[in-house]
Design a protein around this nucleic acid. Structure first.
Length: 598
RNA sequence: GCCGACGUAGCUCAAUCGGCAGAGCAAUAGUUUUGUAAACUAUCGGUUCUCGGUUCGAUUCCGAGCGUCGGCUCCA
C-alpha cells in the first residue's frame, strides 16, 4: 500500500528502520540485512537472524534504539562505486544482490523494476551502521523522538516478495512525531479491534466458524442470514431496476470448460481439486464467466437486436484459498458473488459502463461507503495475461474512454488486470483505514472468442460480442464483513436483524407487548419481545449491546394509551408516541434505506 | 503453503516451580414485578484443541497434526 499522506514522516520512519537495524545487529551479531522501508504508520526491516526473534526481544531492541537516538549520530550520505560497495557489503548477501540489480538497472532507487544501469550506489551511515539506501533521512538520530516509536510485531516475509526466495524475519514498528501521536495511533488500533467483524459477528450472533465444517466456510445464524438476504435482495432489486436479468448456473462445471476459457491455465491453483465421475472430471465453480457464456450459446443464435444481454447471478463460488490467507468473512473459501456478465457490441461498451457505474454508485452510497477510489488496473509488462496485444489495446482504450466520459477520477495500476482484460476497481476505505476492492467493471475482448460466443450483426455478418464482467458488492460475505466494521455493527434500520425490541416493564405488560409485536410484524418489521424476568434497565442494556435500533418500552401508561415509549440505540429517548406514529416513522426510514433512526 | 504467536466452560480470561482446573458474564431454577445501560440466591457447565512422548504425576515440558490470529504471496 502506498502512503497518500504522512509523507513528511517518511524520513523519520525510514531513519527509525535504520536505527532498529543497528540495534538488531548489536543484539544479534551476524544478522544479514534485507530492506527496511517506511510504510503507512511506521516502518519495517527484514533480517536474516542467527536465531529466531520473538516479541520478548522487543524491549531490548527498543532500549538499544533509544541509546542510539540519544547518541545524536548524524546520518551521513555518500555515493560510492559499485565495485567499492561490493567490497563494503561482502558479508551481506542480500545487499550484494541489490547492488547487482541496481548496477544492471533492474532496480531503481525507489523499487522500480526498470531503471538506468549505473556505476554508483547511494549509501547512508550513522554511528556504526552503514546501509545501501536511497534515503532520505532525518539529519540526526536524535531527530527521531525516543518516546514516539514502538516495535509492533514480527512476521516472516520472503526476500523480495517471492516464495522461491528465503524467508526473512520482518520486524514492524510504528513511529511518530510525538508521543501524543503515538498514543493516538495505539488508541485507534484498540478502537479498530473493537470493530473487528469477527468479534462483532460473534457478539451479535450473526455467523460462526466450525472446525467440523472446515476453514473458510462460515455458518450464518438466523440473524446473519437475514442481513445477507436483505443485502442480496437490495442488489437484485436494483439490478432489475437498471435493466439487468438474473440467471442460475449451479455449482459444478466440467473441467474441460475451464481449459477452453483459459481459466485452467491461469487460475487452476485456486480451484478445489477435481471430482472424477468415470470419464467426466468436474470442478466446483470458482467463477461464473464460462457458465454464463455457455448459457449464452445454448440460448440459440443471437441477433444484435438482443444486445446488450445482461446476465446476473448470485452464485456461491468455491475458491481454494491458501490456509494462511483465510480470515473472517473477508477471506473465505465459499463466497457468494453478485456477478454479472454483459454481452454487448463494441460500441455499447461506454453506455454499459455508465449503467454499471451508476448502479455501483447508488449501492455504495446506500451503504455509506462514501470514501472510495477507482483504480484502472492494466496489464503489466509480464505476468499471467492472455497474449493478444491488439485486443488488450482495444479493451484498455474502451475502458479509459468510458471512465473519461463519466468524469471518473482514477489512478492507474500496472499489472493488476484480470488475465483476460483491464478493469476498473472500486476501492472503499473501511473504519480500520484498510482499502477493500469492492466493485469492479472489467472489459473482456478475449474469452467470448475462445468459447465461441457470437451474434449476427446488422449487416448479416457473424460477430463476437464484448464481455463486460461486473460486480457491485463483490462477494456478499466479504462485503458484510467490511460493512460490519464500517458501521461498528450498528446496521441501518432496513438491515438490522432485529429492528425493534419490546421491553415490557413488568410481566403484566407482556400481553400488550405481544400485541404490539403482532401489529408491527404484520407490517413487515422484525420484532422481538424481552419477557425475561429482568429489570427494565437490564433489558435496555442487552438490547443496546445488540445494537438494536429501537427499544420500545411498554408499561401501564403505554398499554392504556395504545402507545410505545421509543428509545433509540443512540441513547436518545423519543418519549411515548402512538404506535401508528412510530410505525409510520420507521416504515419511511426503512423504505428510504436511511441511516437515521428518526 | 511459508515465518511467528496463540488454543483452558457458550463468551472474556486466570491457574506460582510440573502436584485435586478457577472467576465474571451467559445458561437453568427460584425469589423479585421493576420506568430508560447490569436485581438477588442457588445450580449447571471441562477429553485444558487432537494424537503421541518424557515423568510417580502434564493445562504446564518435548514432538507431530488441526485450528485461530498477525504477516509474506496471490486474488478472475
Amino acid at each position: 500500500m502506498v502512503s497518500e499522506n504522512g509523507d513528511a514522516l517518511r524520513p523519520l520512519r525510514h531513519s527509525a528502520a535504520h536505527i532498529m537495524a543497528e540495534a538488531v545487529l548489536d543484539i544479534f551479531p551476524g544478522t544479514k540485512f534485507g530492506i527496511g522501508p517506511a510504510i503507512d504508520n511506521g516502518f519495517y526491516y527484514d533480517f536474516l537472524l542467527p536465531r529466531p526473534a520473538t516479541p520478548e526481544d522487543f524491549a531490548a531492541i527498543e532500549a538499544r534504539m533509544r541509546e542510539i537516538i540519544r547518541g545524536g549520530y548524524l546520518f551521513q550520505h555518500s555515493t560510492e562505486s559499485v565495485a567499492q560497495a561490493r567490497q563494503d557489503f561482502q558479508d551481506q548477501p542480500f545487499k550484494l544482490e541489490l547492488i547487482d540489480a541496481i548496477s544492471k538497472g533492474e532496480l531503481g532507487l525507489h523499487g522500480e523494476e526498470q531503471a538506468k544501469p549505473t556505476n554508483e550506489v547511494s549509501i547512508y551511515k550513522h554511528d556504526t551502521f552503514t546501509d545501501l539506501c536511497a534515503g532520505p533521512h532525518v539529519h540526526n538520530t536524535s531527530d527521531v523522538p525516543a518516546d514516539a516509536f514502538k516495535l509492533m510485531s514480527i512476521a516472516g516475509a520472503y526476500w523480495r516478495g517471492s516464495e522461491k526466495n528465503p524467508m526473512l524475519t520482518r520486524i514492524y514498528g510504528t513511529a511518530w512525531q510525538s508521543k501524543k501521536e503515538l498514543d493516538e495511533y495505539l488508541w485507534r488500533l484498540e478502537e479498530a479491534k473493537k470493530r473487528d467483524h469477527r468479534k462483532i459477528g460473534k457478539e451479535l450472533g450473526l455467523f460462526y466458524f466450525s472446525d467440523d465444517i472446515g476453514p473458510g466456510l462460515p455458518l450464518f445464524a438466523p440473524k446473519g442470514e437475514i442481513v445477507r438476504h436483505l443485502m442480496e435482495d437490495y442488489v437484485r432489486e436494483a439490478q432489475t431496476r437498471y435493466g439487468y436479468q438474473h440467471v442460475w448456473t449451479g455449482h459444478m462445471v466440467k473441467e474441460e470448460l475451464y481449459k477452453k476459457s483459459g481459466h485452467y491455465d491461469n487460475y487452476s491453483e485456486v480451484m478445489f481439486p477435481p471430482m472424477v465421475d468415470d470419464d467426466i472430471i468436474l470442478r466446483l465453480k470458482p467463477m461464473n464467466c464460462p457458465s454464463h457464456m455457455t448459457l449464452y450459446k445454448e440460448m440459440g443464435l443471437h441477433s444484435y437486436r438482443e444486445l446488450p444481454l445482461r446476465f446476473c447471478e448470485f452464485a456461491t463460488l468455491y475458491r481454494y484459498e491458501k490456509r494462511g490467507e483465510l480470515g473472517g468473512l473477508t477471506r473465505v473459501r465459499a463466497l457468494t458473488q453478485d456477478d454479472c456478465h454483459v454481452f454487448c457490441a463494441e460500441e455499447q461498451i461506454e453506455s454499459e459502463f455508465t449503467l454499471a457505474l451508476n448502479l455501483i454508485r447508488e449501492v455504495l452510497n446506500a451503504y455509506h461507503f462514501l470514501d472510495y477510489r477507482v483504480r484502472l488496473s492494466l496489464r503489466g509488462a509480464e505476468g499471467k495475461f492472455v497474449a493478444d496485444d491488439e485486443k488488450w489495446a482495444k479493451a484498455t482504450a474502451a475502458l479509459r474512454a468510458a471512465l473519461d466520459a463519466n468524469d471518473v477520477d482514477y489512478f492507474v495500476a500496472e499489472g493488476e488486470a484480470a488475465f483476460y482484460g483491464p478493469k476498473a476497481d472500486f476501492i472503499a476505505r473501511d473504519a480500520l483505514g484498510r482499502d477493500w476492492q469492492i466493485s469492479t467493471i472489467q472489459v473482456d475482448f478475449i474469452q467470448p472468442a475462445r468459447l465461441g460466443c457470437e451474434y449476427i450483426a446488422e449487416d448479416g455478418s457473424t460477430q463476437t460480442p464484448v464481455l463486460i464482467h461486473r460486480a457491485v458488492t463483490g462477494s456478499t460475505e466479504r462485503f458484510l464483513g467490511v460493512l460490519i466494521e464500517h458501521l461498528a455493527g450498528a446496521f441501518p434500520l432496513w438491515l438490522a436483524p432485529v429492528q425493534v425490541k419490546l421491553i415490557p416493564i413488568a410481566d403484566r405488560h407482556n400481553a400488550y407487548a405481544f400485541e404490539v409485536q403482532k401489529k408491527l410484524q404484520a407490517q413487515g418489521f422484525r420484532v422481538e419481545v424481552d419477557t425475561r424476568s429482568e429489570r427494565m434497565n437490564a433489558k435496555i442494556r442487552d438490547a443496546q449491546l445488540q445494537k438494536i435500533p429501537y427499544m420500545l418500552v411498554v408499561g401501564d401508561k403505554e398499554a392504556e394509551a395504545g402507545a410505545v415509549s421509543v428509545r433509540l440505540r443512540t441513547g436518545e429517548d423519543l418519549k411515548a408516541m402512538p404506535l401508528e406514529q412510530f410505525s409510520a416513522m420507521a416504515k419511511k426510514l426503512v423504505d428510504e434505506k436511511s441511516m437515521e433512526l428518526k
